[in-house]
């Protein structure tokens, strides 16, 4: 085919939009949220946890029962309009106690995760960023801490400091921040060689600035996922301790203490032990689903 020259013409400047970007600009988190919403299990988990959190805040305030108010005439009642989840062996309303327990269990879970996050980021960040001998030393300390079973720390600390929330928290956190520190260190080690972090160094950025604005910010995906997974593990540790009778002490109650109290009579009144255990299971399951969903949606390679 013959192409004549007059079929072609030079483009005017305003017609040259070869570098035009058609996709609407979204931030990383907006993108992640769109991907997260597609995951139905994770979304269900998020709804469940939101309900539990709201319930934990408002049910004990709004209900006409208190978590410790006894009604001796009305012991071991089955679920009814007056007591939605029934009553326990002292005639206390289980519905209120479940949400009061949620306060304790969820606070321990989230607080422990938050403490782990803070310690882990600072410790792992410094270890990975400084590198060399400092890194070697800091990681050996971590290995030693990690080699002792978590339960041992918790039980020892409960023995020394007594059975209360603070000592449970300290016990849980004393070794579980190690996982976060290792994760952050690995991320920082690989990111600090990337050219954008070298560029920051060349332009004279301080170490703190490079660490937080460039390295940690780019590890936020794995960090969030790992934090989400730490919440259920802390909740479980607390529930386990309370269930074997060395956790939160009466009259305060977590799901673990409730299960422990109901355990003695579970053959006669099985429903009383089902409530707290169902709560523990569903909460852990939901948080795990959320963690999985976040893992997929925060990974920039999955689009």
């Amino acid at each position: 085919m013959e192409l004549s020259k007059d079929l072609f013409r030079k483009l005017e400047d305003n017609e040259k939009n070869s570098e035009f970007i058609a996709v609407q600009s979204r931030t990383y988190l907006q993108d992640a949220w769109i991907r997260f919403r597609r995951n139905k299990l994770a979304l269900a988990g998020l709804v469940f946890i939101t309900i539990m959190i709201l319930g934990a805040i408002f049910v004990p305030i709004l209900s006409r029962y208190t978590y410790e108010g006894q009604d001796i005439a009305n012991r071991h009642a089955l679920p009814s309009a007056a007591h939605w989840f029934g009553t326990d062996k002292f005639g206390r309303d289980i519905f209120v106690r479940i949400f009061y327990g949620a306060r304790i269990s969820l606070s321990i879970g989230f607080l422990a995760a938050f403490i782990n996050l803070c310690i882990g980021i600072v410790y792992g960040g410094i270890s990975g960023f400084v590198g060399g001998r400092v890194d070697l030393f800091m990681m050996r300390v971590v290995d030693i801490l990690y080699s002792v079973p978590e339960m041992l720390y918790v039980i020892l600390i409960m023995v020394v400091l007594g059975s209360n929330m603070t000592s449970i928290l300290i016990g849980i956190c004393i070794s579980s921040w190690v996982g976060m520190a290792r994760l952050v260190r690995t991320q920082v080690l690989s990111l600090k060689q990337q050219e954008f972090s070298l560029a920051a160094q060349v332009m004279g950025a301080s170490n703190t600035r490079i660490l937080f604005k460039h390295l940690i910010v780019n590890s936020i995906g794995p960090i969030i996922v790992s934090v989400t997974m730490m919440v259920p593990s802390a909740i479980f540790t607390e529930a386990f301790l309370s269930m074997v009778g060395i956790g939160i002490s009466i009259p305060m109650s977590s799901w673990g203490t409730m299960a422990n109290e109901a355990r003695e009579l579970y053959q006669n009144y099985p429903i009383e032990i089902i409530w707290p255990i169902a709560c523990i299971c569903l909460t852990m399951l939901s948080l795990n689903f959320i963690g999985d969903g976040l893992g997929d949606s925060l990974d920039p390679n999955k689009k």
Binding site: E195, L198, A199, V202, M203, G204, K213, H214, V217, I220
Partner: peptide, 19 residues
Amino acid sequence: RKQVQMVFQDPYASLNPRM
């Protein structure tokens, strides 16, 4: 550091993706 700068080889790695 104010007077001397560097342009890097890999334009995909040299910009912080979160900024």
